[in-house]
Design a protein around this nucleic acid. Structure first.
Length: 251
DNA sequence: AAGGCGCCCAACCGCGTCGTA
DNA sequence: ATACGACGCGGTTGGGCGCCT
């Protein structure tokens, strides 16, 4: 199937939006809603393609959008969410009210990536446990998928399952029930629905698996209440659905 | 003052997904 | 089952701006 580019038609304007165009779009949507984006520009009298209108509205004109610089707290949230979700900018944006995926993507590429680059986690932590070594060995084994931790988290959070460490028994996995994680300190902007959403509805069979890397021992199976601030920086997070623990995903 | 350079961010592009006929 | 339109997403681009020399 070959799809014609949406702005292929001659006469449609591209590039930066003029204030008058913004005004037309705002008043049209306020009056009629956006409905079908494809037909909106024609009905509103704009020489733009629907896609361009949608983007302009979603990323700039919508009243729900919070303008202005990102706070330190927001930046921290983005970093942590990126560890969990990977480059799923829209999913990250959902958790940060008023921020758009485009904005988050931009700030990631311009600020946060650099910030993380300059950060090097300490080596040879004395608290590294046997379990964390086992996981580490699996992740870096020759026949293991060669992916970074962030890619892994992206894959696993997509399907809410799937990263498994075959040499470990299920009971050896560190499984922490959703409600036992005190995430409020780090995800203060995120409401409870975030965790509920990621864990689907069945709390008995779905768990967040926290692979704490350097700080593995600090998390007590089924008994963890709080993640220490020191831990958080080194935390790799994978979502594991307990009933899927026997199969490796296709990566 | 002006030219070069790098950064930032709004906007575009192409593709995947979903819904419907 | 297939084709197709619409939407949404993530990657990329390029113009504008500020800083530096």
């Amino acid at each position: 199937m070959v799809r014609a580019p949406c702005c292929e038609k001659m006469g449609l304007k591209k590039g930066p939006w003029a204030p008058e165009e913004d005004q037309i779009l705002i008043s049209y949507i306020q009056k009629n809603g956006h409905g079908n984006w494809r037909v909106l520009p024609k009905q509103a009298g704009l020489l733009r393609c629907g896609k361009s209108c949608r983007l302009r509205w979603m990323n700039y004109l919508s009243p729900d959008i919070k303008r202005g610089n990102f706070t330190k707290e927001e930046e921290d949230n983005i970093i942590h969410l990126h560890e969990i979700l990977g480059n799923r900018w829209s999913a990250i944006a959902e958790k940060l009210s008023g921020r758009t995926d485009n904005e988050i993507k931009n700030i990631w590429h311009t600020h946060l990536k650099k910030r993380l680059k300059s950060y090097q986690p300490p080596q040879n932590s004395k608290r590294r446990s046997k379990k964390s070594n086992e996981i580490n060995n699996f992740v870096h084994a020759p026949n293991s998928p060669q992916i970074s931790s962030s890619e892994m988290s992206a894959v696993t959070s997509d399907s809410l399952s799937s990263i498994v460490f075959p040499s470990m028994q299920i009971e050896d996995q560190i499984l922490i029930k959703q409600k036992e994680i005190d995430s409020s300190q780090y995800f203060s902007k995120i409401d409870e629905s975030f965790w509920a959403e990621e864990l689907a509805t069945d709390n008995n069979s779905n768990f967040i698996t926290i692979m704490a890397g350097e700080e593995f021992q600090s998390l007590d199976m089924f008994n963890s209440t709080t993640i220490l601030e020191d831990d958080m920086d080194f935390l790799f997070k994978f979502f594991i659905k307990a009933e899927d623990l026997t199969e490796l995903p296709e990566l």
